[in-house]
């Protein structure tokens, strides 16, 4: 780790101003950033800690949506009665992230802003067609995830909350990479007002929607329908833990399991 300053602000606006002023980085739960800093892979001169900002916290039901503050910890989402009642798949997804320590520190906003290709939350946000609110604007999930560790967020733009429309039903199935237990492939399947959505994490450079699965499941929402879909391996990740072909194979298998879990 290199030396760095840590600053706190008393509002999101003040935090954004501090980041602009110092050229620093926002610190959410720190579960990726601090680890990278310890390895000297990240070298922010200043961290602006978002932890005390109450406007970034909390879980509430707002009509047909569940609104979760950006600094809400995974453990809070996993345990929240509102989440379990409205979108149990989202609570289960949060419960399956990392380990207890990670879940007690890691945050929804931090995970989305980092957009790790194997993170779970991006699959939930994209799969549910959520809306990401920032200190500047609102961004539809379909427009938010841009590529490997890349999002639509501009410099100094901070996620404030995420609004998840409550689906008819949804399920997330993660096949864990054996070492990191991140998603080797994770598939989020949701039946929503806007139709069937299938989001895939772990398999590509960034979370993506599997249109072929969505189309098949829109026709027949059955496990067999999902399983019959063939996903091309082109463009998918290939590493120590699985080839692109293996990941391509797993996508419909896991989608089918998600559908089966909803039967």
């Amino acid at each position: 780790m290199y030396s760095f300053d840590i600053r706190k602000a008393d509002s999101v606006a003040a935090a954004a101003a501090l980041i602009a002023q110092t050229g620093g980085r926002a610190l959410a739960g720190g579960q990726s950033l601090i680890a990278a800093m310890k390895l000297r892979l990240a070298q922010p001169g200043t961290l602006v800690d978002l932890a005390g900002l109450t406007e970034l916290q909390g879980i509430r039901r707002d009509g047909n949506a569940l609104v979760i503050g950006a600094m809400t910890r995974h453990a809070e989402v996993a345990a929240a009665a509102d989440v379990k009642a409205a979108i149990p798949a989202l609570a289960a997804l949060a419960e399956g992230i990392g380990d207890r320590q990670v879940r007690n520190m890691g945050t929804l906003g931090g995970s989305l802003a980092n957009n790790d290709p194997a993170a779970c939350y991006p699959a939930g946000v994209l799969g549910l067609g959520a809306t990401v609110h920032t200190n500047r604007r609102t961004i539809a999930a379909d427009d938010f995830f841009k590529g490997l560790y890349e999002t639509a967020l501009g410099d100094g733009e901070l996620i404030t909350q995420v609004s998840f429309p409550v689906p008819t039903k949804a399920a997330y199935v993660k096949f864990a990479q054996p070492a990191s237990r991140f998603a080797l492939v994770g598939v989020f399947v949701a039946q929503t007002g806007g139709g069937v959505r299938v989001a895939v994490t772990g398999a590509g450079p960034s979370v993506f929607r599997a249109k072929a699965l969505e189309d098949a499941l829109a026709r027949t929402f059955t496990a067999d329908a999902a399983k019959a879909v063939r996903i091309p391996a082109t463009g998918l990740n290939s590493d120590l833990h699985g080839s692109a072909e293996y990941r391509a194979h797993l996508i419909p298998v896991l989608a089918a399991r998600a559908v089966a879990a909803l039967a």
Partner: peptide, 24 residues
């Protein structure tokens, strides 16, 4: 079942160089 130390056959870099890739 799990543990596998893997080097890149060309570069000689250790690919399973942390517990994120080396499964205990």
């Amino acid at each position: 079942l799990l543990e596998h130390c893997v080097y890149d056959r060309q570069s000689g870099q250790l690919l399973s160089g942390s517990l994120m890739d080396y499964a205990l």
